[in-house]
Structures are given as C-alpha cells and as structure tokens.
Amino acid sequence: MDTPEDLRYSTDHEWVRVAGDRVRVGITDYAQDALGDVVFVDVPAVGAVVEPGGPLGEVESTKSVSEVYAPVGGEVLAVNTSLAERPELLNSDPYGDGWICELRPSDPSTVDNLLDAAAYRALVDG
C-alpha cells in the first residue's frame, strides 16, 4: 500500500494534504483497494460547511456503498468535477487526480490531530 509521508490520515481512511489555508481531501490507497472498482462518487456542494467527522460524500463501487467523512470541519471550497465522468480516478490515482474536495478548515490546528503516515500504516497493517 502506498502511504505518502507528506499527508495526514484519518482512522476512517481519508487523507489530507495541507496547502496554505486550505486542505485537499481524498481516500487512501488502502481504502480504494478495499472498495474495488469505483463507479460513482458523490461529492459535497461547494460552499457547504461540514462538521469534523460529518458526512462529506459517498463512494460507490461495483460491490459496495461507502460514506466519506470529513477529516476536519470547514467550508467546501472546491470539488473534483472530473470524478463525474471518471470515478475510476479514485482507484488509479487516489492521492493525485482522484482527490475529492478542498476545505478551508474552521480550526486549522485540528489537522495536527490526524495520524501521520507511520501511524496510519500501523493502523492498516495492524
């Protein structure tokens, strides 16, 4: 499993990449592998305000429906519109072109509460 060092991770298998005052969010390589082929991604509305741990969207694969939770709370600034036609990007490039949305954290310090790469690896290998 690929677990980039520069990201932070939730115990629900989302990743966060900090860029200035915003964070980009997606699901991990472990998560996409467990889901199998993704066929539909429900992304949040731009402008929506999400609670930490609250619903952020849904990922549907050929075998299951999975909820995506907000790793941090905040306002949705952007969503990955490519996923409407190419949801398989979550499988092929989960940390890159398969990102789901960008948030402006209501409390940027909460990012520090997320797991680092080593702790996330320990979680999924455990």
Partner: peptide
C-alpha cells in the same frame, strides 16, 4: 469512510 457489507459477499 465506512463500508457496507459487499453485495456479492
């Protein structure tokens, strides 16, 4: 992220 039981399993 949580996953419902797979439909085929």
């Amino acid at each position: 992220m949580t996953t419902e039981p797979p439909a085929v399993a």
